[in-house]
């Protein structure tokens, strides 16, 4: 009888330990899902293509200073199409600012709304040192349908990466795509899939 008691209790301990392991394993898978989905900034295949020269614009920013978009520049430019009415834009702006500082990019926010609302938005989000322009024509030339949308233009004035950016990972993926020399992280994964069976 003692053997039965002892072995039953030992088995129960093993069962509890296994169920704990199952729980921990499922939790880890959940964390992995949070980290990997979705992969990189989603590129909507419209507007000027990656590798092509960025459309040239000369227009005033919200403070009336002249701004030139496209063409040769000292630093690469990160165009961020955003609006004061979109909550995700508010989340992405500080990340874009940090990324511009870390990577040495010129951050230009492009809006399409009333200049007063955009001015208030720029002040509230500390965009003082960055350029903010209110220019629906720029959005149209890039065929922006969804925001926040970011375009990375290199020093030579060519588009290097672009996509819908909802998170830090998405924004960083644009810089990564630029470094790797691919149009988007999706392209990289698709090519990698063929070459190395990822």
């Amino acid at each position: 009888m003692t053997l039965l008691y002892v072995s039953t209790v030992l088995l129960w301990i093993a069962v509890v330990a296994l169920s704990l392991l199952l729980f921990a394993l499922a939790r880890q898978i959940g964390i992995l899902h949070e980290r990997i989905a979705p992969l990189g900034a989603l590129m909507l295949d419209q507007g000027p293509k990656v590798g092509e020269p960025a459309p040239l614009f000369e227009l005033p920013d919200i403070l009336g200073r002249p701004v030139r978009l496209g063409g040769k520049r000292d630093r690469a430019t990160l165009l961020l199409f955003a609006s004061s009415t979109c909550p995700v834009c508010k989340k992405v702006l500080p990340i874009a600012k940090a990324l511009a500082r870390e990577e040495g990019l010129d951050l230009v926010m492009v809006g399409d709304e009333s200049p007063e609302a955009l001015k208030r938005f720029a002040e509230a989000n500390g965009l003082g040192e960055h350029t903010v322009i209110n220019a629906p024509e720029v959005g149209r030339s890039y065929r922006i349908g969804k925001i926040p949308y970011a375009v990375l233009i290199d020093r030579e004035g060519a588009i290097r990466a672009k996509g819908l950016v909802n998170s830090r990972e998405h924004l960083e993926s644009l810089v990564e795509a630029y470094r790797l020399g691919v149009a988007s992280i999706q392209d990289f994964l698709a090519e990698g899939g063929k070459r190395w069976k990822v």
Binding site: W12, V16, S19, L22, F23, L25, A26, R27, I29, G30
Partner: peptide, 14 residues
């Protein structure tokens, strides 16, 4: 009963 609890949590996560 601990097994029931952890099995439930594991199933929910899965």
């Amino acid at each position: 009963s601990l097994f029931v609890l952890f099995a439930y949590l594991g199933l929910s996560l899965l």
